[in-house]
Design a protein around this nucleic acid. Structure first.
Length: 282
DNA sequence: CACCATGTTCCTTG
DNA sequence: CCAAGGAACATGGT
């Protein structure tokens, strides 16, 4: 579920649910998930702590906590590839891959992650290393041009560099390049000023559209499979029963480009799939 | 069985 | 030292 838009939607969903709640007890079922913190540190620090606020930075969730002695501290979450966070009734059995559980009284805050690539840690150093927020003011065309200058790396690969832009992942990188009409294989440093400005725009549009359309997973696990906006590749439930096409190229290998009908191509860059239209993307 | 998967980090290579 | 490429991590779906 995890690129910037998914994390943003999750944060908006979770923030009012956790605000002012107190952690009675924290359980670490998968110690790897809290690294570089230790299981003991997490358990000790979270006992009696209260949720003060919740923000997103790149693909990270930043929980602002107030400890039992009044001290503020950050709790940093990352969903990895398969992480999910939600509240569930305390009587519910814990899911198979529950990595960290916080008992809130009546409900549990559950961080489950089948592949265990995610994080829930007290260490916030990763945040400082991130590039600007693509939807924020610091992400200007000038900044972007500067960040790309001199790089021989393919632009698609460059877009995944969290030190350049925070939050773009493998799906939206392909999507933004399609919208900009730019080939994913061009060296980042060879883009013209106009293309860079255009790509900056399409990155912002792509991410904002995804946020506006809602979540890619069911966010509410506490009821009977309440699906407040479940969709993923290709389609999204709208207000009615209709499904709307969501992605233009990602995971559409061999399917017709929605613009020109040319077959969408899949290539591998940096050991990851890239999808693009060879005709629309020069 | 083979291959693929929304992410990040670490190792190797040049 | 730096940039770039690719494997590793761990589990599940097709």
């Amino acid at each position: 579920m995890p690129e910037l838009p998914e994390v943003e939607v999750l944060v908006r969903h979770l923030a009012p649910l956790v605000k002012n709640r107190t952690v009675r007890r924290a359980i670490v079922r998968r110690p790897k998930i809290v690294l570089p913190s230790t299981q003991e540190q997490i358990v000790r620090k979270l006992r009696g702590a209260k949720f003060v606020g919740l923000m997103r930075r790149g693909k990270y969730l930043l929980f602002e906590m107030r400890g039992s002695k009044g001290q503020r501290f950050p709790l940093v979450g990352h969903l990895g590839m398969t992480g999910r966070m939600y509240l569930a009734p305390e009587k519910n059995p814990l899911p198979k891959h529950a990595a960290v559980v916080m008992e809130l009284g009546g409900e549990n805050f559950i961080f489950e992650d089948t592949r265990y690539f995610g994080r829930m840690t007290l260490d916030d150093s990763a945040i400082a290393a991130l590039g600007p927020e693509p939807l924020g003011e610091a992400f200007t065309a000038e900044y972007f041009a500067n960040a790309l200058r001199g790089s021989s790396q393919a632009i698609k690969v460059k877009l995944l560099d969290q030190q350049v832009i925070a939050g773009v992942g493998n799906i939206y990188a392909s999507e933004a390049l399609f919208r900009a009409g730019i080939s994913p294989r061009v060296a980042a440093g060879r883009l013209k000023a106009g293309q860079i400005a255009r790509l900056r725009e399409t990155i912002r549009e792509t991410l904002q559209d995804a946020i506006d359309r809602g979540s890619t997973v069911p966010l509410n696990y506490s009821g009977e499979r309440v699906r407040d906006g479940l969709f993923y590749f290709g389609s999204a439930p709208k207000a009615g029963d209709f499904y709307e096409e969501r992605l233009q190229v990602y995971d559409r290998e061999g399917k017709p480009c929605r613009t020109c009908k040319t077959s969408v191509k899949r290539i591998v860059q940096g050991a990851r799939s890239t999808f693009y239209c060879p005709k629309c993307q020069r």
